[in-house]
Write a protein that binds this DNA or RNA. Structure first.
Lengths: 198, 198
DNA sequence: CTGGAATTAGAGAGCAATCTCTAATACTTG
DNA sequence: CAAGTATTAGAGATTGCTCTCTAATTCCAG
């Protein structure tokens, strides 16, 4: 069966994550990844056909890891609990996974991955489908409406505003203050609350 | 006095802005900037000592242009009007200056400018001072307090959350919905409103 | 122990980007 | 109109990165 792998896929993705989160997208060069693993750059290309493929796989892995908890939160039976859990998940996940959060929050896919590898085409297209569906489902379940505004406000409250707080957490050198989750949750309810009057 | 300039500083910054907003940070290469102006790349270096200096000057110019209106808004005499004006300014400025907003909102200085040029050192350190002071002043004027939480909530309401909406505007292909400014303003008051009860 | 297959090792080709250097050019002042 | 100077023009040195190619190594199966 041949020689056992010394640097497996996950280790390479982890190294790329470290470098991208520390030095930005340009920091995760193939040479730098190899150096961090103590390998020559040629060995990396044995497992990944291109640098873009490494970063694309990292991107997918990171998004999936975040979405797992987010989807569970949004899909809670009680809408009130769903809002609280969704906001809390985004902020606590940011604190607990600082490197992955940094890559996800600070960079866009287009700037991280120059050319999306063909072999992953479908994964990219469907990556956000579940989240989109969960937002629409939330709007329908709680408000009985799927108008553009209803869905848009839900997205603002559960995704965009928590995202802003995450970004602040990442940029700050100090740990997030205890009132932050409350504040973002309050903002979420405020944005959603107006929907009932319209 | 010699030959009249054919490509002046502002034209070079404008070209860099176009390229950075269209293709991301890596798109604004010196060669690309020169090509857009119809000049050889050597001519660019006659006006700017380095690529980093071009992007640094662009960064400063863009921040200043945004801050102008933002500071005027936050400093309005009536705090209620100040909140509304600050939120509205961020969102309308994003719509009215899509290229500059894109550079400001999507990229961090560290990822745009590899090494901040020494000759601009002071400008970088003091760039955000006025905004920081205006946020602190707002918290003091309205709430009579400069505790970390008070200032933090003000920053969340007037900067971070409007920022998130800006980012959404930029990413969407369609113009922002009419309810967006209201929603972000509502969120701002919700975040600030809690302060009175604590 | 031995043959074979997967993996590592390492050098280097090719390319793109920054920055430099010198010569040519056009404008402005006296 | 002449002289001086700021600017443009363009070629090329250098660097760093992606990706390729071949030889060496290690492990497993029989």
């Amino acid at each position: 069966m041949g020689r056992a792998p010394k640097y497996d896929d996950e280790a390479i993705l982890d190294a790329a994550l470290d470098l991208a989160s520390e030095h930005g997208p340009h920091g995760a060069t193939v040479v730098a990844i190899a150096e961090r693993l103590g390998a020559p750059s040629g060995s990396i290309y044995h497992r990944f056909a291109s640098r873009d493929l490494i970063l694309a796989r990292l991107w997918i892995r990171t998004i999936r890891r975040f979405q797992e908890g987010f989807l569970a939160a949004v899909r809670l039976d009680d809408p009130d609990q769903a809002v609280r859990a969704a906001v809390a998940h985004t902020l606590t996940w940011t604190v607990e996974h600082p490197r992955e959060a940094k890559v996800l929050v600070l960079y866009r896919r287009e700037d991280l991955i120059a050319l999306w590898p063909d072999e992953l085409g479908d994964d990219l297209a469907t990556l956000n489908d579940e989240v989109k569906r969960s937002i629409t489902a939330f709007a329908r379940t709680w408000f009985g409406a799927v108008a553009a505004e209803t869905v848009g406000r839900t997205r603002l409250a559960l995704i965009d505003q928590p995202y802003a707080a995450s970004r602040r957490i990442i940029s700050d050198t100090v740990p997030p203050p205890p009132w932050l989750i409350d504040a973002v949750t309050t903002a979420a309810f405020a944005v959603l609350g107006e929907m009932r009057q319209s």
